[in-house]
């Protein structure tokens, strides 16, 4: 249980903002083990979202190396990177980000359909995953007919449908009330505990971060604290 699934080395990411260069992530080293639930905390502007984008291959670093599932992302073409995301990475976002024209079931099945899985099989698997998030009855509803919590559960189902090696969650509770937040976090935690799902979650909410085995606090683009929370008595 000590297999490194994602690793970044001296990763820096700079942005141009109005003529000056802003360093959002400043030389971070980090390794995530298979099965871990890592919570990344920090104030807004601390670089936590950028770190997640870099680790997941949504953005490329200005300097440094990102290794995901043994692939050095810098050496992959955009298509290869996209395929890696499609097959091995799941995403959950703050604003649910479901496609409004598709039903819940179709949204969940989307990554499978993109991988050219047969429509009937994709629907079957999507239905299964929807069941695990408790939304089997809402399968045929469009996103605008679902509550925020339900939409986020559909998003999680979509992220999980490919049995990804890694699940990235960017403020998954940022737009939810506290009870829905708890449901979502519990759902994530359950997938970690029961299926050994590796989860990397960015949040500014300490309550959400408390679900992680590791709470990493960023400050000014650097790791301020990396705290293991497991099996420590209070």
């Amino acid at each position: 249980m000590s297999e490194v699934i994602a690793q970044i080395e001296r990763v820096t990411r700079e942005f141009k903002r109005g003529g000056s260069v802003v360093r959002a992530v400043d030389g971070i080293d980090l390794a995530v083990q298979r099965g871990e639930f890592v919570a990344i905390m920090g104030k807004s502007g601390s670089g936590k979202s950028t770190l997640l984008h870099l680790m997941s291959g949504l953005q490329r670093p200005t300097r440094g190396r990102v290794v995901l599932l043994g692939h050095d992302l810098g050496s992959l073409s955009d298509d290869a990177l996209t395929l890696l995301r499609r097959q091995h990475v799941g995403f959950v976002f703050q604003f649910f980000n479901l496609l409004p024209t598709l039903s819940a079931l179709e949204n969940v099945a989307l990554p499978l359909l993109l991988s050219s899985v047969r429509a009937s099989e994709a629907a079957g698997r999507a239905r299964q995953v929807l069941e695990t998030v408790g939304l089997q009855e809402r399968a045929d509803h469009k996103p605008d007919e679902l509550s925020g919590g339900q939409m986020q559960r559909v998003a999680i189902a979509r992220a999980l449908v490919n049995r990804p090696a890694l699940l990235f969650a960017d403020e998954p509770t940022g737009n939810l009330d506290s009870v829905s937040s708890e449901e979502i976090l519990t759902l994530l935690k359950t997938t970690q505990v029961e299926q050994g799902q590796t989860i990397i979650m960015v949040t500014h909410d300490a309550k959400a971060a408390a679900y992680g085995d590791r709470v990493i606090t960023l400050r000014d683009g650097r790791v301020h604290e990396d705290l293991a929370t497991r099996s420590v008595a209070v």
Partner: peptide, 16 residues
Amino acid sequence: RREIGILRAVGTKRGE
């Protein structure tokens, strides 16, 4: 734009 972002994030290739 955001939907295109989602599509890209969940693994839609540029060509797609």
